[in-house]
Amino acid sequence: MATTRSMRQLARKRLDERFAALRALPPPTRAAPRGGWIRTIREALGIPRHELGRRMGVGEKRVVQLERGEAEGKLTIESLARAAEALDCELVVALLPRRPLEQTVTDRRMQLAAAWLKSRALDTMAMENQAVSLDDLPSQLVREIEQQFPDERLWDPT
């Protein structure tokens, strides 16, 4: 089943709402502790490495490797999930866009439209001292730009 533009817009809106809640958290809250989550939680609970290893079905040496791997950003999600389970934790993994998804799509569409318009009418108008900014474009032209650059083509190499 093909995803329609309105379905993608709705998906972006819902995701942007969820991301807004995560963005509202102060950056230190979103960042992993210096030694990584496994070590920090294990130590806070007072669980020795050998006990965590027993719960995970691995040796203490492997727990050291897991903690080091997490702190270095080299641990697989599968390993992190196993450690989380052994620590009675829920694993939460997220990609948090730096700005709303809808804004990213709009900006990309306008970037493509600017290049397209520049290669056509705006160049001629500028030469005639009649330059127009994208902010001044009427809503009908914005709709035409959305049709000219649908979501499916926004990320094609230019």
Rank of each mutant, 00 (worst) to 15 (best):
M1F: 06
A2C: 08
A2V: 05
T3F: 08
S6Y: 03
M7N: 05
M7H: 07
R8F: 01
Q9M: 13
R12A: 08
R14Q: 05
D16G: 02
R18D: 04
A20V: 11
A20S: 06
A20G: 07
L22C: 04
L22I: 09
L22R: 07
L22G: 04
R23S: 03
R23Q: 04
L25I: 06
L25D: 06
P28M: 11
P28R: 04
A32N: 11
G36S: 06
W37G: 02
W37T: 07
W37H: 14
I41A: 01
I41G: 00
A44W: 04
L45I: 03
H50S: 14
E51G: 04
E51Y: 04
G53N: 05
R54P: 03
M56N: 02
G57N: 05
V58K: 06
G59L: 03
K61C: 05
R62Q: 08
Q65C: 05
Q65Y: 06
L66R: 00
E67H: 12
R68C: 01
R68E: 11
G69I: 01
E70Q: 11
E70P: 06
A71G: 11
A71F: 03
K74E: 10
T76V: 05
T76I: 11
E78R: 10
S79W: 15
L80N: 02
A81P: 00
R82H: 11
R82W: 10
E85C: 02
A86K: 00
A86L: 03
D88R: 08
E90H: 06
V92L: 09
V92P: 01
V92Q: 14
V93L: 14
A94H: 09
A94G: 08
L96T: 09
L96S: 14
P100Q: 14
L101E: 09
Q103R: 15
Q103Y: 10
Q103D: 10
T104P: 02
V105W: 03
R108Y: 05
R109S: 13
R109C: 12
M110F: 14
M110H: 10
M110R: 13
M110G: 02
Q111N: 10
Q111V: 06
L112F: 01
A113T: 12
A114M: 13
A114W: 02
A115D: 14
L117P: 00
L117C: 07
R120V: 06
R120P: 00
A121I: 07
L122R: 01
L122M: 14
T124L: 13
M125Y: 14
A126H: 12
M127W: 02
M127Q: 15
M127H: 13
N129G: 03
V132W: 15
V132K: 12
S133A: 07
D135W: 13
D136E: 14
D136T: 10
D136N: 13
P138R: 14
L141R: 05
V142C: 10
R143I: 01
R143C: 03
E144A: 15
I145L: 13
I145D: 01
I145T: 02
E146P: 00
F149R: 02
F149W: 06
D151I: 03
E152V: 15
R153C: 05
L154N: 02
W155D: 09
W155M: 08
D156E: 09
P157F: 01
P157A: 08
